[in-house]
Design a protein around this nucleic acid. Structure first.
Length: 509
DNA sequence: ACACGGCGC
DNA sequence: TATCCGCGCCGTGTA
């Protein structure tokens, strides 16, 4: 609910959901994951061709709106009963459709059980070290203050650094720096542009630094303490099960799936995610899950072999692409291979690869050719996925999750190309989403069965975070690893890495 | 409300 | 010919 952002989360009622077994919203989402609205009234129009009465129809709107207990009883009865009847009618229709689409297992064995796992996680929340964030905030303020002075000095005048328009004026009119990239409405000042300009003037680099502090401070450091619940002293995110086109979860209010990790400054924010006294934070993440899925689906023997031998996949890829012994792969070579490995799953082309690695277009093309000759079945797999998706109009994950891709039959080439990348990415990303959902359900089941006090608190796409009483640590370790690694058996076996610490940063080691 | 920029996987 | 890397959420400025 959008309104949650404004009124704050006040409901901590722990509603007993034991007997809820069919969620029309989730069923409709599985039937069309690209759909945007799955409200009861949307579904009634779509599947029953029935227009439900709206709340405003019975209670009025604006300042004339009355409270529901003042509504005429007949009208209130009619309105309320409609919800129940429509839900029931939808349930039968949607279940039938799920069956026709082969998605009953996905629905009953993965998505519906997951509802309760997510309810539990939202209820658990995560403890935040507010004093630490306050300290970081002050530290950032100081650094931003000095940067501000330097920036105004380099610009020759004070201006609002956060205003793209004013920044454009300073960089491209006043200082006459070259335009590298345009946006729909003007000249781009994003990070890649500023980095390209860095060798011509000192200002761009300072802007980059300033932006980094500004981003971290406003989005995380200052925002998180305000979201600590007054009664639980913890932050309770919302997980959404019907948002993404691929089957992933999303998180909002606040989004705890995009807490910084890449920059050194950003990492410090993870220190503020802590465990209650007597507990530790346990992080469990799938190592290279998407690449393993790709290797499995493509049946690529080279890639499967590398994973079965437990090799560092990026180094192994580099060693074979560059024809050098495994132990002589240097940092740059490994980085190149890593970029290709990841880019592959998003359908990165030679153009983007060349930009990313600061190499020529020809070199980028050669790398990609080398890559596909090393992993030939991967290339075949990509072709196959796209071909099948174009014929059928949709793709499916290993567990039968579907995504329709009308883009593939669009007359615009650019949109078609987008459709191709979406097709490949959805199979991989969506299968990974299926797998971690299965693991979450089985882990929660074990925790309940064994009446353990450990809590699952976050899911970050390929990582699960737990808050664990120290005495349960060794037991929970094996449960987590077992449930996650055996969620499905792949030719390139799933591997889970576990970390333990007083906070999220330490646990992620 | 929208565009941009930027954080995560 | 020219070339956007898939999926999200959110803060800020602008209108």
């Amino acid at each position: 609910m959008k309104s949650a952002r404004f009124i704050g989360k006040v409901s901590l009622y722990y509603v007993d959901m034991t007997h809820a077994y069919f969620d029309t919203m989730i069923a409709a989402y599985l039937l069309d994951s690209s759909g945007r609205r799955f409200k009861l009234s949307d579904l009634a129009s779509k599947y029953l061709d029935y227009k439900m009465s709206e709340y405003e129809d019975v209670a009025g709107k604006g300042k004339d709106q009355i409270v529901f207990d003042e509504v005429d009883v007949q009208q209130a009865t009619q309105y309320s009963a409609e919800d129940a009847e429509i839900t029931y009618s939808l349930c039968r229709i949607l279940e039938q459709k799920l069956q026709e689409e082969g998605m009953l297992d996905l629905f009953y064995r993965i998505e519906m059980p997951l509802v309760f796992v997510l309810q539990e996680m939202e209820h658990n929340g995560v403890k935040i070290d507010v004093p630490l964030l306050r300290k970081i905030s002050e530290d950032f303020s100081e650094k931003m203050g000095s940067l501000e002075t330097i920036i105004y000095d380099l610009a020759g005048e004070p201006f609002n650094i956060n205003s793209p328009k004013q920044l454009q004026y300073i960089l491209f009119e006043k200082l006459n720096l070259p335009v590298k990239k345009k946006t729909k409405t003007g000249i781009s000042t994003d990070i890649s542009v500023l980095e390209e300009l860095a060798d011509q003037h000192e200002l761009p680099q300072k802007i980059v630094e300033y932006r980094q502090y500004q981003k971290l401070k406003s989005t995380y450091v200052d925002a998180l303490p305000q979201l600590v619940h007054p009664r639980t002293g913890r932050v309770h995110t919302s997980f959404h099960q019907t948002v993404t086109a691929t089957g992933r979860l999303s998180s909002s209010d606040p989004n705890l799936q995009n807490i910084p990790i890449r920059s050194e400054m950003g990492k410090e924010i993870r220190r503020a995610f802590i465990a209650e006294n007597g507990n530790v934070i346990v992080s469990a993440d799938y190592s290279q899950i998407e690449l393993r899925i790709f290797a499995h689906i493509a049946q690529d023997e080279n890639m499967i072999a590398a994973f079965q031998k437990g090799e560092d996949i990026h180094a192994a890829t580099a060693s074979r692409i560059f024809h050098i012994p495994f132990d002589q792969v240097n940092g740059d070579q490994r980085r190149y291979a890593k970029t290709i490995n990841f880019g592959l799953m998003y359908g990165m082309g030679p153009f983007r690869l060349s930009k990313e690695l600061h190499i020529s277009l020809d070199e980028a093309k050669r790398f990609i050719d080398q890559y596909f000759s090393l992993y030939p079945r991967i290339q075949e797999c990509i072709t196959h996925i796209i071909q099948q998706a174009t014929e059928r109009g949709y793709v499916q994950t290993l567990f039968g999750r579907k995504r329709y891709l009308p883009e593939l039959n669009n007359r615009n080439r650019t949109i078609q190309e987008l459709g191709k990348r979406e097709a490949v990415n959805t199979v991989i990303q969506g299968t990974a989403a299926d797998i971690i959902k299965i693991a979450m359900v089985s882990i929660q089941r074990k925790l309940d069965e064994q009446k353990m006090c450990s809590k699952m608190i976050l899911q970050i796409h390929d990582e699960l975070l737990f808050e664990v009483p120290t005495e349960e640590l060794s037991a929970i370790r094996s449960i987590i690893v077992e449930c996650m690694e055996s969620a499905i058996s792949l030719q390139a076996p799933l591997k889970v890495e576990i970390g333990v610490g007083e906070n999220w940063l330490e646990a992620a080691h």
